[in-house]
């Protein structure tokens, strides 16, 4: 396994809107080691979202190189990027993005359906159950998203991101739709996963949330302006109630 999960040099993205060219990224360099917990901050219009799209292999840079887990993904076509997204990236979104009317465990199994692992249904189910267990949702596997609280839904999303054992978790404002206590809870899960060796890249505009990472970079005008190690704000997981919150379950009935 290579040392660097992300190795980006001279990353440039230019959007052409009619006659006007907008330079969203202007030769950005970034190296992320395996096992890091990185937060990417920046105001809107800074190029943060563009960076996130390229990091997540949803988009291609106009120029520059991007090595993800040792693979140059900057020139891949649509289908090749889909394969990379499936195998190497675990997405966590602000709005959870779970499939409605689909149980938690089925949501978590979803990436395995598109992968090349060739697993049987039982193997997929087992992997999904294990991932749910890791985010503390054991026992809620048959609940549908509408029966789960926001925090629980985000846990399902994290389990879905984990299930393929990707090279990195890419979380885009994962706490944007949650209250502060639940946000702490979710950040605690990321910290725990990071402690066990997972590389986590967190995109956020909230400084409080960014303080949960070990390293914070700030993007402005398409390049990285600040890059600093931070004293991690640890979430005390002991203070957090068990994940299967009976109150939330009652409330959604």
């Amino acid at each position: 396994m290579p040392q660097n999960v992300i190795e980006i040099h001279g990353l440039t993205k230019i959007y052409t809107m009619g006659e006007v060219e907008v330079r969203a990224l202007a030769g950005l360099d970034l190296v992320v080691d395996s096992g890091e917990f990185l937060a990417v901050m920046g105001p809107s219009g800074s190029g943060k979202s563009t960076l996130m799209n390229i990091l997540g292999c949803l988009d291609r840079p106009t120029a520059g190189s991007y090595l993800l887990d040792g693979v140059d993904v900057s020139k891949l076509d649509r289908d090749e990027r889909a394969v990379i997204r499936n195998a190497k990236i675990g997405f966590v979104f602000q709005s959870f993005n779970l499939l409605a009317r689909t149980s938690a465990v089925e949501n978590v199994e979803l990436p395995l359906i598109y992968g090349d692992l060739g697993w049987s249904r039982a193997e997929r189910h087992q992997a999904a159950m294990h991932a749910l267990d890791r985010v503390g949702l054991k026992g809620r596997e048959n609940s549908h998203p509408s029966q789960l609280s926001g925090g629980q839904q985000q846990r399902v999303a994290i389990a879905r991101a984990l299930v393929t054992e990707p090279a990195m978790l890419l979380a885009d404002e994962p706490t944007g739709n949650l209250d502060s206590r639940t946000s702490e809870e979710i950040m605690g899960i990321f910290q725990k996963l990071n402690d066990s060796g997972k590389t986590v890249v967190l995109i956020t505009h909230e400084p409080d949330i960014a303080q949960h990472a070990r390293r914070v970079v700030t993007v402005r005008d398409g390049i990285i302006q600040h890059d600093e190690k931070v004293e991690q704000h640890r979430v005390d997981l002991r203070g957090i109630p068990p994940p299967v919150a009976p109150v939330a379950a009652e409330a959604t009935r």
Binding site: A82, R85, N86, N97, L110, P111, Y114, G115
Partner: peptide, 16 residues
Amino acid sequence: TREIGIRMAIGAKGRH
């Protein structure tokens, strides 16, 4: 559309 986006983000190819 959103469901399609989710599926694509987690690795569904166009032909899937």
